[in-house]
Design a binder for these strands. Structure first.
Lengths: 342, 342
DNA sequence: CTGAAAGCGCTTACAG
DNA sequence: CTGAAAGCGCTTACAG
């Protein structure tokens, strides 16, 4: 049994309302001595505001929800994204509530998924990495849930990274250094728009320079098994040490970039001079002890953009807001990218 | 303005209570035709249960909070941990609410931090990686917040990994294979108990076998800078290729393990035969394309243990529950660990 | 500076 | 099968 305002009132011999005022933000209306007595009693008894009553009064929960698919591995919400969300929300004393509904529930059941039905949030950030169920759109609309999409290039109410420009800029950076044999390295073609856009950005930059795009690595359906890891590694080793390897590569995956750095060292190919490496990654952390040129996917910035957008959407309750495209940022471009020799 | 029961009642020409019953779990008390009418109206109007009113009635939020320090990087809550928490909560349609208070607020302010004061949760999972402020204990106690600690070896109300046994078992596994020159590799001594316990587990196993523990790597205060990465890498390269390197190593960090695998390949030291490697890590994922013997820190299992414990604590409101020590698990012990040659 | 009334949206006995 | 009453904990006008 939690402590209520009434209990404190009884304890200090005042009315419920008086205590409520003092515990709220109208303490200044009362005698200092009265205030002190009430505050002391509240602390002594361990009074904590009842969040439910509060929410009911204000019609606001002061919390936003992050909706994810169960099917997508949780890891798809990057730590940077969560950290940035939290940072934004902390400033306004809001909470972040996590929720997952599995696609089957969303699609099959005619009723609203229980988890969403009684979700104590003012609005939602939708984090489906592509392939969200159509019915989700219906639900958001029908129940007038303010929501901002991430990872989806909707014209309205969405925040997404500009992967096209990111990959294009990465490629142009290498082109400007004088590279002409620039390849795009990838072993997994995702269903996500970013997968297509990165390839487009790269190949458009190549075409614009009058060059043929070249792709290294084919789609391997299996990404996670030990065999898949080994196969990728073998493939990377093979092309890194081959004579006609490109002078520069744009790599679409951090793990593959690590393999390239690794095998370059193993077979004696010097990064930068023998092979320029530009990594597309959510982190710009050193790889195997060395800094790698990175085009950073703006995971954190997307969260920074999404929160204010959602808050605005909540207060204006429902009007469509123009989407925000968040640019990628280049880090340490000359760490592993140098003009080609010879 | 969200849709309420009253609005539906008006719409179908029934009383508020009747509609409430039908929308709740007592629909069977009414005529099928009435039910259908109400349900159809609810769907048409987009009725969603008011979570605040619900929580107020039940005295339960059906949500638990995960409290983290701002100071500790968010990354310290591992994705596995979050995923496991979510999985547990999904089964009971509960939500997970994330909250961070910075240590200063917790320590300095006499008042309850606002974020915790109006947190709509039934209980808390505390995820401070050591060095939690003493005042946090006061607050939990004073406000009777049901809480389970993680990462802290409290005798009550805590869930923690058995890092001592993990490191000991890892070492014994190598001892049983016949290794005698087994070193413990670490470049950062954390303040967390696991840091001490792993060393103890390793060195106790060595002593029990009549051997001297040997530590490779000294504490480098700086872990994250590019220079620190480079320094670690250089150090690993040096001892991996030195003649008197140990025949086996227990490595306390995944990143360092990656460096060892990397430089072993670079300098031509064969993992398993020339150097046995046992990694202590939260993941047992392949490293640089190859499977590495791993003693896995049971991040996910800790979450699986913490949730039922917290739920019990919530329902029994307050009694002290015995803590749970979660064992580490060994994966692929013979991937990179082999009996020493010669 | 302080006390009595109404209501946020819902549920739960209680009579019919 | 259906309707009128009370209350969960709090705040917000309203009189004194």
């Amino acid at each position: 049994m939690p402590v209520t305002v009434s209990m404190i009132a009884k304890h200090v011999g005042l009315s419920r309302q008086t205590v409520g005022f003092i515990l709220g933000d109208r303490g200044h209306l009362f005698r200092e001595e009265t205030r002190k007595r009430v505050l002391a009693a509240a602390e002594e008894l361990g009074y904590r505001r009842n969040a439910a009553a509060m929410a009911m009064m204000r019609g606001r929960y002061n919390a936003i929800g992050l909706l994810q698919s169960v099917n997508a591995a949780f890891g798809l919400v990057h730590a940077n994204f969560l950290a940035a969300l939290m940072e934004q929300l902390r400033a306004t004393n809001m909470h972040l509530s996590l929720g997952q509904v599995d696609d089957e529930t969303l699609v099959d059941e005619s009723a609203m998924p229980e988890l969403m039905n009684s979700w104590a949030v003012d609005g939602l950030i939708i984090s489906y990495v592509a392939n969200y169920p159509e019915r989700l759109v219906d639900i958001l609309h029908r129940y007038r849930l303010p929501a901002i999409w991430t990872n989806v290039k909707h014209p309205f109410d969405a925040v997404y990274s500009d992967d096209y420009a990111g990959a294009r800029d990465a490629t142009e950076l290498l082109l400007k250094m004088g590279h002409r044999r620039i390849a795009f390295v990838r072993y997994y073609d995702g269903v996500h728009y970013s997968s297509r856009d990165r390839w487009s950005g790269y190949s458009d930059a190549m075409h614009a320079a009058g060059l043929q795009p070249r792709r290294i690595g084919t789609h391997m359906g299996d990404w996670t098994s030990a065999e898949a890891h080994a196969r990728r590694a073998e493939h990377v080793r093979a092309w890194v040490q081959t004579a006609d390897r490109p002078s520069a590569v744009v790599i679409d995956d951090e793990e593959v970039a690590t393999l390239v750095v690794h095998f370059a060292a193993v077979v004696g190919v010097a990064l930068g001079s023998d092979l320029s490496v530009m990594n597309i990654s959510r982190d710009a952390l050193p790889v195997l002890g060395r800094v790698v040129s990175t085009m950073r996917i703006p995971t954190g910035d997307m969260a920074f953009a999404a929160v204010p957008l959602l808050l605005e959407k909540i207060t204006t309750s429902g009007s469509e807001l123009p989407s925000v495209s968040v640019p990628c940022l280049s880090f340490n471009p000359d760490a592993t990218c140098r003009p080609p020799v010879g």
